[in-house]
Simulated assay, not measured.
Amino acid sequence: MIVRPEVFDDETPPPDLRHREHQVQQLIQLLHRARTGSAQGALITGPSGVGKTVLGKTVLEEFAREYGTRWTWIQTLGKTTGDVFRDAIRAVGGDVAGNTPNDELAGRLRQAIAGDDYLLLLDEGDDLAGTGAVGKLTAVPGVEVAVICHEPDDWLARAEAEVRQYFHGGRVALERYGVDELADILRDRAQVGLVDGAVTREQLETIADDVAGVAREGIQTLHAAAEIGVEREHSRIYDVDVDDAYERARSRIREANLSSLPFHHRVLYELIRDVGGITGREFHQRYEAIAERVYANRERMPISRRDRRNKLDKLQEYDLIERERIDHRWLYTAVDPDLAAPLDVRLAPSRIS
């Protein structure tokens, strides 16, 4: 039944950006303004799974091909300002060591691009606001930036004044798809990835409705339904296969999300998962009790309470943890207690007295 499984991978680009035509034009217009000398950033916003990264990568790739502009995509989650600069320098062919002082990085980037235009797509940029990273990048002549984040108002409120001005009027907002829109997208994947007649339009609309218009979850649910159908020796996808596909798809997405997270997030996740449920106060106490040992001999340093809270938001956003208010306290639990984060260090003690 499944003829091209790679069609359902997150890394496989869609044949076209169906039902995103307006946002494509918005982003192209912002890139044109930047190219003609009007400093103008693009803030690509929206909830998880609606195609922000796909939109950014696809449009920047086409724009760069047409105008000969160099560009790169940088996953910024968990990275310092220095890390982002080094990634940008190396992506354009520049040479920079890991211990190069931060105050030399802007000059190294300017030297590497040699007066040309250079577009940076900064993914998972929620934590960049207020760090100075975006302002320092855009201060380099020729560098223009597009940032992907989830909550634009919160992001701009935390950003520096010059960064807020840089992104003024530069939002490209993506919402969840409508049922018919997502069913169209799923049909495109099915036509390439499955045998003819494997799934009905009604089933695609059911999936689109049940996942509330989140493209990533819809695509993974369709894939999981086909896998289950094959396992049951069905010649096509049955309704019962769809019914049983949702949890497999969500589990697969959670596993991929967890694997994509950097060390800090994995530590925080394991602190919660390991005990089966923990209050906010116990969580911070336990983190502070293990931090010195967990971070020993690592480049990363323990993070502040504020940074921990920001990263807990990301874990919730990724459907990895749940938060419940009980007796004036927040209780955190793992959505899937059997899903462990890959860590090379134990987090004991498991309880704080």
Score class of each variant (00 low, 15 high):
Arg351Trp: 15
Arg266His: 00
Arg266Ile: 04
Pro47Tyr: 02
Glu11Tyr: 11
Arg4Cys: 10
Ile303Leu: 03
Glu181Asp: 15
Val294Trp: 04
Arg187Ala: 14
Arg293Tyr: 09
Lys314Gln: 12
Arg305Ala: 14
Gln203Ala: 06
Gln165Pro: 07
Ala212Leu: 15
Lys314Ile: 15
Asp83Ile: 06
Gly78Lys: 00
Arg306His: 13
Arg248Lys: 13
Leu77Thr: 08
Ala88Pro: 03
Tyr177Ser: 02
Glu270Thr: 01
Glu62Arg: 15
Ala42His: 08
Ala198Ser: 05
Arg65Thr: 14
Ala114Glu: 14
Trp330Thr: 11
Ile185Cys: 05
Leu320Arg: 05
Ala215Tyr: 10
Ala341Ser: 01
Thr53His: 05
Tyr269Asn: 08
Arg266Ser: 04
Gly107Leu: 07
Ala183Leu: 09
Val92Cys: 06
Tyr166Met: 02
Pro342Gly: 05
Lys136Ser: 15
Glu322Cys: 10
Pro349Tyr: 02
Arg286Phe: 06
Thr81Ser: 08
Val134Ala: 04
Asp126Asn: 08
Ala190Lys: 05
Ala34Ile: 10
Pro13Ile: 02
Thr221Gln: 01
Gly98Gln: 10
Ala334Val: 05
Ser304Glu: 11
Thr72Ala: 05
Ala190Trp: 00
His32Lys: 12
Asp16Val: 10
Gly213Tyr: 00
Ile352Pro: 07
Trp71Gly: 03
Pro5His: 06
Pro152Ala: 00
Arg325Asp: 13
Ser48Ile: 11
Gly178Gln: 07
Trp71Asp: 01
Pro15Tyr: 04
Phe85Ser: 07
Ala341Arg: 01
His284Gly: 09
Ser235Asn: 12
Ala173Asn: 11
Val214Met: 11
Lys136Phe: 11
Ala348Trp: 13
Arg323Trp: 11
Pro15Val: 13
Val54Cys: 08
Gly276Ala: 02
Leu347Arg: 03
Asp188Cys: 10
Leu320Gly: 02
Gln316Gly: 13
Val345Gly: 00
Val211Ser: 01
Thr58Val: 13
Glu202Pro: 07
Thr279Leu: 04
Thr80Val: 06
Ala161Tyr: 13
Ala256Gln: 12
Pro5Ala: 08
Asp180Cys: 06
